[in-house]
Nucleic acid binder design. Structure first.
Lengths: 260, 260
DNA sequence: CGAAATTTTGATCACGTTCAACTTCAGTGG
DNA sequence: CCACTGAAGTTGAACGTGATCAAAATTTCG
């Protein structure tokens, strides 16, 4: 069923966003063509640049081809909360572009390359090929679910459980787009970023990281995290992998004359 | 532009879900008809009943016509975190039904009445009338955004700011579906529910509630909350109202032969 | 190389938890 | 009518997790 996607990937065109879409809906070559024709440009972004700014309009959907970012908000007292980290295959402008003015900012945590398209154009595509509207819903649902897990972490997990959960979540999400090995991954975040994501202070995060190390759960060198006892980690973190279903396909009578 | 919706509401058919949909997309009588034909049944649910159970399949979308619920998860240590509260006009099964097995539970906090439809049928409608796919995306985006605000609250707001924000958020959401006055609203949640939503203990929540009262920000009697200084509350809570845009309409050439 | 960012460590303190008891109130049955 | 029950709200005292502030050690990068 994924033959087409695999073909695309094996051909060397490793696009993490297409990989993700393909895990929700079937994509024909015609679908891919339509999608590609929406892309206005491929944008290179430097580390530390703000991509979306809280309070300003943003009306693009930018698919992350490479690099990492964070969606965040700073309060009047100067504290920053990172809502979630943005990985390859994620969409910038979801949810920002759906509002008159974005309610959160997005900052590049590394150099990035994005594929930019106008939200209006994407919605146009949703009218021409409804499966993209369905896929967009799936993307938004995954966004909501990630966020929900984050609420649980911050609300009821202890600091060490939170950290363990964060590492496992990032690992799982990277695995989904083929950017992580089974045993570990290259951690692209500074401790400051992680502490702002987890609602902790930097010193405390540092201590919890040390604790995971001394307790033999993980090893870190050169920013590469290796899980030494992934089962134990998952228990500690109350981690459950989430399996989004594929979207139902359109009923037969519609598929006959169906484009794509 | 909302003439049709207003007509529907004024006719006494006050459906909060239709109200919300209508604030995202234009709805013709034919659209409403299609939507209504998906409804399998109207379900009455007793207070305290679980509607969705963590770990089990759920494959419906249930539109809340009346009553309140909470989406939550309990961890191994017995702590419960409420991810968000479910109000009239919200959808149960978003996100639960998009997974092989729901990752959170949903419990009725009051007696409720739901309009139940199968997720597959709704997706079918999205293929026949793409605007519903777009609308579903909007619903999911709002879900994600509410959740994001929740992350910010729990992560970086103090306990009193959190509580203030929660009260304002519920008030704003109720107002959107015409279920709250400008000055206040009937609080349908026990303190235990609020503390589980905000990641606090019941005694501490109780103290913060008392503090809001003694500081002249709110008054409570008979579970009715009145905002005495809403401006001051919003400052305290770092509250910003969110304005979701309406979905772009399909391009002209498509609307000519467009059903609905 | 020098400057800046990041990581690590230590000491003190406060916010919010925990646990426990008590109050209030609505509903129920004797 | 009152006694009983259970849920919800209120208050108090002791404790602990994680914040805060400061400084040193280390790494990264222009």
């Amino acid at each position: 069923m994924h033959g087409l996607i695999r073909a695309v990937r094996d051909a060397g065109c490793d696009d993490p966003f297409v990989t993700r879409l393909g895990s929700y809906i079937d994509l024909s070559p015609a679908d891919l063509g339509s999608l590609r024709s929406l892309i206005e440009c491929e944008q290179a972004v430097k580390k530390r640049r703000d991509l979306v700014v809280d309070g300003y309009e943003y009306c693009k959907l930018s698919f992350v081809k490479d690099g990492f970012a964070a969606r965040y908000k700073v309060l009047r007292n100067g504290k920053r909360q990172i809502i979630n980290v943005v990985l390859p295959g994620d969409v910038i402008g979801l949810p920002g572009s759906f509002f008159e003015r974005a309610s959160f900012s997005v900052i590049a945590l590394t150099d990035m390359t994005l594929q930019v398209c106008a939200l209006d154009d994407f919605i146009g595509l949703c009218y021409r090929r409804p499966k993209f509207g369905v896929a967009l819903s799936w993307l938004a649902v995954q966004e909501a679910t990630t966020c929900a897990e984050h609420v649980i972490s911050i609300g009821r997990r202890t600091s060490i459980e939170r950290l363990a959960h964060f590492l496992l979540e990032v690992h799982a999400r990277l695995t989904m787009v083929g950017r992580a090995a089974a045993s570990g991954f290259d951690l692209p975040f500074s401790q400051e970023v992680m502490s702002d994501a987890l609602g902790l202070s930097v010193p405390h995060l540092n201590r919890m990281l040390a604790k995971l190390r001394t307790e033999g759960m993980i090893a870190i060198n050169e920013r590469h995290v290796t899980f030494l006892d992934i089962r134990e980690m998952e228990l500690l973190a109350h981690f459950q992998p989430l399996n989004l279903t594929r979207a139902p396909v359109p009923p037969q009578e519609m598929r006959a004359g169906y484009r794509g």
